[in-house]
């Protein structure tokens, strides 16, 4: 189900916790599974449950509770933009509208070429750099005015065509 490299990463996480508390590694294990699969299909969650010795339902509870897990397939790149008040005071809503227009999608939708999924996010703890967005949960981009959004989208299109993720 998961690659050898992913399992080694999960093992490193398990080692952070007492031997009888492997469940503590579930959040990172799910994140690692998602990095590899792009989202969390039920088989991936069941695999993690089995790997950590947890009831599957306990893993589903975690996967459904935390917002950064993808329970549906998403585009090659998921862009999450914060529109909370501090960001909104610094043009985040305009940037979100610009993204929607550029991509031709609304929040929660994926472009027809499968390249980008756009999401509305909540506070990312970087309000000083607003507008702030995150690409695939890992890469934070700040001060995202239209010019920088154009550059980011061009970069993602080029990388997407090249097969990189």
């Amino acid at each position: 189900m998961l690659s050898e490299a992913a399992l080694r990463r999960i093992d490193r996480e398990i080692a952070k916790y007492p031997p009888d508390q492997k469940q503590s590694a579930v959040m990172s294990a799910l994140a690692i599974a998602q990095d590899e699969k792009g989202w969390l299909p039920p088989e991936a969650m069941d695999f993690v449950a089995n790997y950590l010795g947890m009831p599957p339902v306990a893993v589903y509870e975690v996967a459904t509770f935390y917002a950064m897990y993808n329970r549906q397939p998403v585009g090659k790149y998921k862009i999450t933009i914060c529109t909370n008040l501090p960001c909104a005071l610094q043009d985040a809503v305009q940037s979100a509208e610009y993204l929607k227009a550029k991509l031709g999608v609304g929040f929660g939708e994926t472009t027809s070429d499968g390249l980008v999924t756009l999401q509305e996010g909540e506070c990312m703890g970087a309000c000083g750099d607003a507008p702030v967005l995150i690409v695939n949960n890992k890469r934070m981009c700040g001060l995202m005015q239209p010019e920088k959004i154009d550059a980011l989208l061009a970069e993602l299109r080029a990388a997407g065509a090249g097969g990189e993720r």
């Binding site: 952070k16 994140a31 935390y66 917002a67 950064m68 897990y69 909540e122």
Partner: peptide, 10 residues
Amino acid sequence: LFNHHGYGAY
């Protein structure tokens, strides 16, 4: 000491 990450829950 170890680091643990959240995944999106205020």
